[in-house]
Design a protein around this nucleic acid. Structure first.
Lengths: 124, 124
DNA sequence: TTTGAAAATAGGTATTC
DNA sequence: GAATACCTATTTTCAAA
């Protein structure tokens, strides 16, 4: 008998299986302490893309950059928002000049440094 | 024999145990498809806090708001950046006016709506 | 290789539509 | 009466020693 949820083990298993099958649970993953692996700098970078032809290659490029944790298409002044992790400011500079700005069509960017993170979850 | 990594099962288990014990692996979690649970709207909200006295209560308050996935302390024009999930624009309006702006010291806010997410990972 | 715990499965009942 | 969601009991699997 499961203690918290007042359901037997098989009943819980069955519910989980249904969530998996229906795609509500997408995957399971380990949560890594980035700081311990020396990725101590978190930054948000707003990006504007020059031409519509550049959009698809840009999306593909950022998808493959390991420093880019997130990439969101935005409504408003900027086109995209990137969430980026680096080791330090030098590493960030390297990322911006040698990786981000070398992508075709990347025009204006605006980088905001995070001092600390009060909360960081992936699921609601 | 593990196929991908060319290591025996006990060797892999031992590595995982060390990562857990050292705090590099912090936890394991299921990744949920938010859209399937009707949380279809993702927004970033910049926030300024009026007085230094308001900071600690603000941090505590946002930590407990389920709609707030992330809260980062920023360098630059704004003090904090929130990543927020809602069901729709009406739900977002409700969040901003009835939850966020009722927190003591929350002054100027600037909300940016996400149209789509190209990439969304938690680990580097 | 062994052993113990956890997960999967089988079989059965109550409830809902 | 068909489908669903739960139970207990049993078997199987898997990981730690």
């Amino acid at each position: 008998m499961s203690k918290i949820i007042h359901l037997s083990v098989p009943a819980v298993s069955e519910r989980i299986r249904k969530l998996e099958d229906s795609g509500i649970i997408m995957k399971y993953e380990a949560r890594i302490n980035r700081g311990r692996l020396n990725y101590k700098l978190l930054a948000f970078i707003f990006v504007n893309i020059e031409a519509t032809n550049d959009i698809q290659p840009f999306r593909k490029a950022v998808s493959h950059l390991p420093a880019v944790l997130e990439c969101h298409h935005l409504a408003g002044e900027y086109d995209y928002l990137l969430k980026v992790v680096c080791m330090d400011t030098q590493d960030l500079e390297q990322f911006i000049s040698s990786e981000l700005k070398t992508i075709q069509g990347v025009q204006k960017t605006n980088t905001i440094i995070t001092l600390s993170s009060i909360k960081e979850e992936i699921n609601r």
